[in-house]
Write a protein that binds this DNA or RNA. Structure first.
Length: 453
RNA sequence: GGCAUCGUGGCGGAAUGGUUACGCAGAGGAUUGCAAAUCCUUCUAUCCCAGUUCGAUUCUGGGCGAUGCCUCCA
């Protein structure tokens, strides 16, 4: 499609036309997980949002012209803490969480990024960047720590709309005697004996939080690239500090050109937080709900807006997909999605607008030709929906159910007999029995079908 | 306190300087032994007050209200 892509750039907070540095080599870096605990539904949102942005970019520029880099942070204070709490080694913890994370990505039908670099595999580059920053006088060493001196970077606060005076006045920044100024942040710090550590010019230690993204984005996308994404909460301090480090280390006027941030998920209108005890892990849904349902729910509001997670949302999405699968057909050839239908996705990734268009395509497909059904299915596939066959979709819940198919079919047979004898009391009784066991009966075209409620 | 975001029908949720999506729920109908599912039809909305304008829900200012960030939480 010739249409331009528009994105809301957090840097300046305006919707802007997306112009890549090089159309044949579009780069997107998204902050992936810190692997200290299994991913929750809040982590799922950026996974799905940026997966769709990835798809839109590939649609516009071609599959081979887009690089999607999503890191895994596997060294961090939270990991150390979590490994102590869980009483397992750091290696075991990060390995386990990473496996679960990948399984969640599959479950949510996300395309694989081009590269998924790990922080621990790039420590030497982080040391190098810290050295560069010291050499260039943007950073200083004190008692085996390396700090970035925020004052030296004149554009600090541009992304998050903050100025230094306010930050200091707020005085909520960690105060440390080692720092020259309270706003300075750590590039390298010493490790205690039982903590992970690497050799460095400043003694054994480990990197500060932000350094891995600066280093890995540089390695895989270069010193300037197109899109940097993540959750809203990362704007400050994480992304602000990334910009400071990277631009100073690389002597550039820009780091990423477009900053894209997704909004937060609330759980039944409450903030999702450990203290609320309402953190929903992605893994907990796998038994009962198809990943496509979560995916649809996650894009049911615009990515910038908050999204409330509740039972009605899940039920609605489940119903919509049940309905949509009625019109699902196998598509083996290339089918074009009408430009009018696709265009909301180009307008700042307006997924609700696109979903509305899919509803319209469904209406057309329902009484339409095979071609209409193919267009409808293709439009769903584009955002990772209806990607399974109809059978697989229908069998998902049957497989997860604890009532056997044999038992159900026996009951249905029994009920059919009763219906033929016009013994509706008995037939309704059997139906109620099955409903109580979670099995829904439907008499359709003279045949009785069933599904798990 | 500072910086942002938001306020659309019963609910969720887009868009828009003029005729306002889409989904759920509701109503009526088709279908059904009755249901369910599905199909067809259909009712309902732009927080308040000024201003700009031929015309504002959309732009500007003010008010009220909600939320987020400023705490290594996506």
């Amino acid at each position: 499609m010739n249409k331009d892509i528009f994105l809301t750039n957090s840097l300046g907070n305006k919707k802007e036309k997306f112009i890549p540095i090089d159309e044949n080599n579009v780069g997107m870096y998204v902050c992936g997980p810190t692997v200290y605990d299994d991913p929750h539904i809040g982590n799922a949102r950026p996974l799905v949002v940026f997966d769709i942005l990835f798809k839109v970019l590939k649609c516009k520029y071609g599959n081979k012209s887009v690089s999607y880099i999503r890191n895994i942070t596997d060294v961090d204070d939270k990991i150390i803490q979590s490994s102590n709490e869980k009483k397992i080694s750091i290696e075991e913890l990060t390995k386990k969480v990473t496996i679960n994370y990948h399984s969640d990505c599959d479950y949510l039908k996300c395309d694989k990024p081009n590269k998924e670099p790990k922080a621990t595999e790039h420590i030497s580059l982080m040391v190098k960047m810290a050295e560069d920053l010291i050499k260039k006088k943007y950073a200083y060493v004190n008692k085996n720590h390396v700090y970035f001196e925020v004052k030296k970077f004149k554009d600090y606060g541009k992304l998050s709309n903050k100025n230094l005076e306010e930050l200091i006045a707020g005085s909520r920044v960690e105060i440390s005697e080692n720092k020259k100024n309270p706003e300075d942040f750590v590039l390298w710090k010493p490790s205690k004996n039982n903590e992970p550590s690497w050799e460095s010019p400043w003694g054994k230690g480990r990197p500060g939080w932000h350094l891995e993204c600066s280093v890995m984005s540089k390695k895989y996308l270069g010193i300037k690239f197109d899109i940097h994404g993540g959750g809203r909460d990362l704007i400050f301090p994480h992304h602000e500090n990334e910009i400071a480090q990277s631009r100073c280390a690389n002597d550039t006027d820009k780091f990423a050109n477009y900053w894209v941030h997704n909004g937060f998920i609330t759980i039944s209108n409450e903030k999702m937080a450990k203290s609320q005890g309402n953190i929903l892990k992605i893994n907990d849904f796998k038994k009962k709900i198809n990943g496509q349902v979560l995916r649809l729910a996650l894009i049911s509001s615009h990515y910038k807006q908050p999204l409330d997670w509740n039972d009605k949302l899940i039920n609605d999405c489940q119903k919509i997909l049940n309905k949509w699968y009625e019109c699902h057909v196998e598509v083996n050839k290339k089918v074009l999605i009408p430009e009018d239908s696709l265009s909301p996705l180009y307008e700042d990734l307006n997924t609700p607008g696109y979903i509305a268009n899919i509803h319209k395509l469904y209406d057309k497909a329902y009484n339409g030709s095979v071609k209409d059904k193919q267009i409808f299915t293709t439009a769903c596939n584009f955002i990772g929906l209806l990607t399974d066959s109809k059978d697989k979709w229908l069998n998902f819940k049957k497989e997860k159910s604890n009532i056997s198919e044999k038992e159900i079919l026996l009951k249905i047979e029994e009920r059919d007999k009763a219906r033929k004898n016009k013994d509706y009391k008995l037939s309704d009784k059997i139906r109620d029995e099955l409903i109580n066991k979670g099995v829904l009966i439907e008499d359709k075209d003279g045949k009785t079908t069933w599904k798990i409620k």
